[in-house]
Structures are given as C-alpha cells and as structure tokens.
Amino acid sequence: MSELIRLAHGFGGRLTQDLLDQIILPALSGKDGHAVTLDAAVLPDLLPPVVVSTDSFTITPRFFPGGDIGKLAVVGTINDVAMMGACPQYMSLGLIIEEGFAFDELRTIMASIGRVCRETGVRIVTGDTKVVEKGTVDGLFLNTTGFGTRAFGPVGPELIREGDVLLVSGTIGDHGAAILNAREKLGFDGTLASDCAPLHELVAEVAAAVGGALHALRDPTRGGLAATLNEFAQDTGLQIVLVEEKLPIRAAVASFIEVLGLDPLPLANEGKALLFVAPDAAAAALAAMQKHIYGREAAIIGRVEKAPRRGRVVMETAIGARRVIEMPIEAGLPRIC
C-alpha cells in the first residue's frame, strides 16, 4: 500500500476498499464489535424528539495541543447536539481528502476519532470518503452529523427571561489562543492547550439538578462569547450584561492575550458551555457543574436585563464602567474549527 493517498483511493474500487478496511473502519469499530455499515444506517434506538446537528471541520494546524481535527470533529458535533438537550448516540462521518495526504497522518486522525467515540459511546454508523485533486482542499476536511434523542428541555433562546443568570462552564479563550499560537508560531508552546471536550454529560447534570429552570445553552465556538452572546441578544431582544471580573481565564491565556493585545471574548472555545438559568436555580446549576470534571472552573458571569432599545451585549469593565460588546469582526484570525 502506498504511503500517500492517491486519487484512485476515491474511485470506489479496490483502493477505496483498502482505505476503508485498513484505515477507516478499524478505527471506528465499537466496543461490542458493532460492524460499521457505510452507505446508510438504520438507527433503531433513536426515539423522538430527535435532535440532529451537522458541522464541518477545516482547522489548521490539524494537530494542536489538546487535540486534533479528528477529536474536534466528533466533540464539536456531540456538543452541538448536547446543547439542544440530547445525548448524542449516532454520527455520520464524511472525509474530503487531498491527493497526496499521508496515510500515517490519516491513521492517527482516525484513531483519535475512534478513541473519542469509544469514550463517549457515540457510534459512527455511516460515512463517505472523497479524494480530490491537490490544491482543492487544504489537506483534510471533515464533516460530522450527530443524532440523539432529546433527554431534557425544551431549551432555546425563546425561553430566556429578564432576570436570568448567565453561567459559563469554565475558562474562556483556551482553544482560540492555542490555535493562534500554533498557527502563527508565537512561542507560547507548553502553556496553551485547546479545551476540546465533550459536554453532553455536564449539561445533562445541570438539567437533572434544575430541570426547567435551565432555559438555554450554547457552546461558544467560532467567534467566542462575543458572537454567541450577540446571537442570543438578537434572538431575544434582551440586554445581556457580562461582568468582566467574573470571567474565568487561565493565567497562561491571560498572559498570551495581554502580550498580543487581544480581546478574549471573540476567541473560540471547544469544551465550554454558556447557560441561561432562572435566578433561583443559579447556585444549584453552578454546583452541579463544579462537581463535573469539565466544569471545575464554572462561574456565574452575568445576567439578563431588559434592553433600552434593541437586544445587545454590554460588559461591566473591571473599573465599573460599561461598554457594548459587538459581534466580532476579525477576519484575520486563522480557521479555527
């Protein structure tokens, strides 16, 4: 077998079968020896209401402290499904591979995917592989679509009320900082790492603790807290107030953003959730998160108020003045998810 992926590996013939048998399928075999069918799958355990989410992953560099594109592709979709109240059960996996891609690299990425699936119980049951000419994609693009039965909820921005409390499950900006450092070779190696982590159990714990008092949740990925909170503000027409002093940030990330003059709010997070909770349930939500391995640094970071005119996000700076947080505009940041 050649060391590099060739166009012929995508033709659907013998080489495609080799690719599947030797690289892709072995990485995905479930714990119970569940055989992965490929073209389509029946999902017997999926009861309504069904939550589905899809995402594509084009990140470079493909390997970074804390994970790789494979781990990200599974975790990212697990989290999208989890934010709608479901435990992700099934997933599809699409690969678009650039001609000349190294087999060893693909093997490592597939192993990563397989590992996350086994750890979380998610089963990849169908997928697709394409090989395209050199230069038409940057190495490897992945797509995952996840399916799960909704276990709690309903949740959504329409349930957010004036007076709700805003919580975050942990430190912000970890993923964005790690990727920017790795991509631009800024020399902060060793202290920055992506927070890439599956949050379905964490949010389920919160839902179990507070029930219907959990109104809405979302993971602040691309565009960070700035983008996600602005989306909520636009959807609800309410004013979301962030308290700068309460934002949990790792010391290494704080240093990094100080040196580069960056704002942490637009930086991506791949293992954090923002939650809107009714005020009397805030303490219980916080406690539930802090008990979980991915929620140890959870914090209450803001509240929801009536907006003077349109929905917007406002931050109380550490000196007590307020400023408006806009949708981030940085086009210059690298592809991060």
């Binding site: 704002d263 000196i319 007590g320 003045a321 307020r322 400023r323």
Partner: peptide, 12 residues
C-alpha cells in the same frame, strides 16, 4: 485610545 475604550474610561 485602545485602553480608554476597553475600560470605557470616558464614562467616568
């Protein structure tokens, strides 16, 4: 100017 904006200092 950047820091004045970031802290919303003109409000004070």
């Amino acid at each position: 100017e950047h820091e004045i904006g970031r802290w919303a200092l003109r409000q004070l």
